[in-house]
């Protein structure tokens, strides 16, 4: 190999390394800088003093409580649903599969409007309920319903995929040992897929916590009743910017913790076929 062709090869290698570095740094900065900007905009004193603001406190607790309730309902109903769905064939299964995923691509505002049309005062279900004095729209319950509608696919998809991956030999063996489907689900299937299910649950919690569009359409923006953290951020833009900033930083910190938790639980494998 001649000296000049060697130099050319070295130059090519250097350019490739520089190109790769620029690509990685630019993508990382594009994603990280806006988040970092939030932290640079405030000071620890301002952050901690805003934390005690009634708007922040109220939004924080409302968000946490509604998200925990939503998550509880999704896990309690979603786990047996995903199990029954995976282990059986029934007419319209493909349609159900598609419907489960629909909220993932549906704009949240549309989801909120759909909920309002169905459960609002003049909605198909809302009107008869209203006759019995039951109102769903613009209540805390509406916040939970919106969160479940938008966030449940994260858990359902994960649970479905885990149950499908699991080697059927475990459940078959449990059946031959006399276990009922419920016992198999609770003693074999869930424990063997637990880490993945927790990772799905954490994602669902994160999505519920960040829910904005469907909530504002179906539950409104009533402080202390339906004003969750993302809604309080929006209100803060028009009024007290520091409040919005503090809540945003809180949401960033929670999101970060969620992603770390998901990575931790996603490392464990399901015993597959």
């Amino acid at each position: 190999m001649t000296r000049s062709s060697l130099q050319q090869k070295n130059l090519q290698r250097t350019l490739t390394v520089i190109g790769a570095a620029v690509l990685i740094i630019s993508v990382t900065l594009y994603l990280a800088l806006p988040v970092a900007a939030l932290f640079f905009r405030t000071t620890p004193e301002l952050f901690f003093s805003s934390l005690s603001d009634p708007v922040v406190q109220s939004a924080l607790w409302l968000s946490l409580i509604t998200s925990v309730i939503s998550l509880g309902i999704v896990v309690l109903v979603g786990t047996p649903f995903a199990y029954v769905h995976c282990r059986n064939t029934y007419p319209g299964k493909m349609i159900v599969d598609t419907l489960i995923d629909l909220p993932l691509v549906l704009p949240p505002a549309v989801a909120g409007l759909a909920l309002l049309v169905l459960y609002g005062r003049v909605g198909f279900i809302g009107r008869p309920l209203n006759m019995f004095g039951i109102t769903l729209a613009f209540t805390t319950l509406a916040v939970i319903m919106a969160q479940i509608f938008v966030a449940s696919p994260f858990y359902l998809r994960q649970a479905k995929s885990l149950f499908e991956q699991l080697d059927p030999a475990y459940e078959h063996t449990a059946r031959t040992l006399g276990a009922s489907p419920l016992r198999i689900l609770t003693t074999i299937t869930i424990p063997l897929t637990a880490s993945g299910l927790v990772s799905g649950a954490v994602m669902t919690f994160g999505r519920a916590l960040g829910e904005f569009g469907a909530t504002i359409m179906f539950a409104g923006n009533l402080p202390g009743v339906t004003q969750t953290m993302p809604l309080a951020v929006y209100v803060g833009m028009e009024g007290n910017f520091n409040v919005g900033l503090t809540i945003s930083i809180l949401l960033v910190l929670i999101s970060f913790a969620i992603m770390i938790a998901v990575r931790f639980f996603a490392r464990r494998e399901v015993p597959h076929a």
Binding site: T176, P191, L192
Partner: peptide, 29 residues
């Protein structure tokens, strides 16, 4: 139903339940 046949069946994949101890596995049925 399978669960009512009282068959001792060891499948090709012995499918011991990995999250249970040996004692718990044997006691399962």
């Amino acid at each position: 139903p399978v669960e009512d046949r009282n068959i001792g069946y060891v499948l090709q994949n012995p499918a011991v339940f990995p999250h249970l101890t040996v004692r718990e596995n044997i006691a399962y049925g």
